[in-house]
Nucleic acid binder design. Structure first.
Length: 276
DNA sequence: AAGGTAACCTGACTGC
DNA sequence: TGCAGTCAGGTTACCT
């Protein structure tokens, strides 16, 4: 799944159901995620109240009385709220963790197990200082994010702009789909050296990132087959992509066939005429 | 320090 | 129908 829009949609979807609710227990059926789910999580969480659901990049931060549960959805993770306690679906093969509340269950599913469920105790300090969060770039919707920032942070770097966006240490939340889409919107070639892109073009790119991510959030997150809404229903409809997964199809602006290349082992799609 | 690559894992799809 | 090969929305760890 999940680029920033899907994570944000998940946050908004689950928050009203679980914020303020007391955790009855945690069922960890498969602890072997990207990193092991901490042993003893059940005993740790029992009786704590989940206070709020925040997001940093693609991480969901579940603020509890004694610390934070960090949840990353990896490539195929989903979080769903099961609220019909009278007809709870049995846990499937890939339903690895349940947080059980008095009136609902928050179920973590992740077929590929690239995701993570970790615990950061309040005694360990600010959760944003967690090693996985401390190196993250700025939030695309924060006041700190701008063309000026992109420009400043890429000076002297020869890396391709597509890979610089994806790396997440300058700006978070732009995954493989939206990297291609935002570069198309800004008219920038994905192989352009990040350090040689002008300030004016970075202004366009920053605006494209904000607009496209916001549009995707508004539509309920774009989705591939794995994404399931937080209420257990699939069927979010995705944005109409301009370039992603459209190899050989005519550009929606100029009709030139869309091209596919590989950068850093990831697919990139672009229009050779609109993007220079 | 920056840049490139391998690795984690399962499922869907394609072609023979 | 089966099997092998390829690809998939992410990110860290390790190498040069």
């Amino acid at each position: 799944m999940p680029e920033l829009p899907e994570v944000e949609v998940t946050r908004r979807g689950i928050s009203p159901h679980v914020a303020g609710q007391r955790i009855t227990r945690a069922d960890v059926r498969v602890p072997a995620l990207r990193w092991p789910v901490p042993p003893g999580l059940d005993a740790l969480l029992r009786g704590q109240t989940l206070r709020r659901v925040e997001r940093r990049g693609k991480y969901l931060l579940l603020g509890c009385d004694q610390g934070w549960l960090l949840v990353h959805l990896g490539m195929t993770g989903t979080l769903r709220v099961l609220s019909d306690v009278t007809a709870l679906p049995a846990a499937g093969k890939h339903d690895h963790v349940d947080l059980v509340f008095e009136r609902c269950i928050l179920r973590y599913r992740d077929p590929r197990r690239f995701g993570a469920v970790l615990w950061h105790p309040a005694t360990a300090g600010d959760v944003l200082h967690h090693p996985l969060l401390s190196t993250l770039g700025v939030e695309p919707f924060s006041d700190d994010f701008s063309g000026a920032l992109l420009h400043a942070r890429t000076r002297g770097r020869s890396v391709a702009i597509k890979q610089a966006l994806l790396a997440g240490d300058i700006v978070v939340g732009v995954g493989n789909i939206y990297a291609s889409e935002t570069l198309f919107r800004a008219g920038i070639h994905p192989r352009a050296a990040a350090g040689r892109i002008s300030r004016a073009r970075y202004d366009r790119l920053a605006q494209a990132i904000r607009e496209i991510l916001a549009a995707a959030i508004d539509k309920g997150g774009s989705t591939l087959r794995d994404f399931v809404g937080s209420d257990g229903q699939s069927g979010y409809f995705q944005l109409d992509y301009f370039v992603y997964d459209r190899t050989g199809k005519p550009c929606r602006v100029c009709e030139t066939p869309i091209r596919h290349i590989v950068q850093g082992q990831r697919s990139t799609f672009y229009c050779p005429r609109c993007q220079r």
